[in-house]
Design a protein around this nucleic acid. Sequence first.
DNA 1: AACATTTTTAATCATTTGATTAAATAATTT
DNA 2: AAATTATTTAATCAAATGATTAAAAATGTT
Lengths: 208, 208
Amino acid sequence: MANKKPMADDSTENKIKKAARTVFHKKGFAATRTRDIADEAGINLALLNYYFRSKEKLFDIIMLETMQGFFKSVKDVFNNEENSLENKIELVVSNYIDLLIEYPEIPMFLLSELRVHPDELIAKMGMKEIIMKSYFIKQFQQGISDGKIAPINPLHFIMNVMGMTVFPFVASPIIKGIGHLSPKAFNALMMERKALIPKWIKAILKTK
Amino acid sequence: MANKKPMADDSTENKIKKAARTVFHKKGFAATRTRDIADEAGINLALLNYYFRSKEKLFDIIMLETMQGFFKSVKDVFNNEENSLENKIELVVSNYIDLLIEYPEIPMFLLSELRVHPDELIAKMGMKEIIMKSYFIKQFQQGISDGKIAPINPLHFIMNVMGMTVFPFVASPIIKGIGHLSPKAFNALMMERKALIPKWIKAILKTK
DNA sequence: AACATTTTTAATCATTTGATTAAATAATTT
DNA sequence: AAATTATTTAATCAAATGATTAAAAATGTT
């Protein structure tokens, strides 16, 4: 098995990247000060520019890596030719809830930065092809042909799964507020959703 | 009928507020320059501080008004004692999709600013009481008692409705990207959802 | 060890940015 | 109209911020 271990890379360059990830994810590009990153990394401010030239260049690297990491799961699951459609839904939801519990700031980070440079990055990632030409979409269309799935635009389906899965994390301050939930209680609710969302989605797909 | 017309208030103070709303909604607090607001309003920069003291004070006003405006609809619909539970779902979804098509940047604005000062504002708005003590929640609990609704935490329900309704707008760059949709085509899809989401939600509520 | 190269530091720059000031203009009151 | 008050402007400030520089320290090479 090609088992690449994460391997604690404590080079200065990597310390800066790690710190940049932390701070950018939490505060976004505009609110982040290069000094925040330097402090977080425990390095001299000038080193940031020595290794990465500018705040913008460093940000672009973090943004790209974050996007790739975030969409890897859909890409893998959607293009698998073994699993059934139902299986895929369960896998995607489960993978994402685990990921989101570990890195809850990522969707907010991605979405708020995507509104600044919307098109380039999405196009660059080839999202359209990855999703719309995936084996999953073929299965979906087949399900419609077979009368097993209500005939709706697959985009509705994608919005529903994403909406139910990632929106709670994006809106977590609101959810925690109205439900009076501690972070732990919130996560417990999210864990519940791992089993619930696939059931709900199946119910939706059958809706006539 | 108490029909308060919007009445174009072209006072300097109001021009600044309007411009601030536009710029803050689009770029968020951190990325907004007070000069951007002054330019957008067509006024001298010093007037912003003359009328509002500081960027922060002006922002707080816009933030509060935006939140109040955004949650007014839920508040009204949820506490109405005439409509059935089904009716309420249709109303909330329909109201919000209309609102979001007109002001698509609002949810992203609110959510990204809420991650900076999460608790105060949510508590200040009394969201917990407004939602959790609403007539709607009573209807929901009753539906569970009567065996008409699957016994789930009402928060799941709220997350599902919000997720399906507002998430597409928050993620619109992604949706437009993968679906290759023009803004018009995107809005058309959203209009479709006005009828679809209530059906889906009903299907979910029945899930055993 | 001597030299060259890479990495790190402290100091400093130039711009940007939120805010203030003092003077000019307009509106209101007496 | 004169005096008073409110609004607006242009100029400027001080602090914050991204970036650079020159020198020091560490590392690698011969």
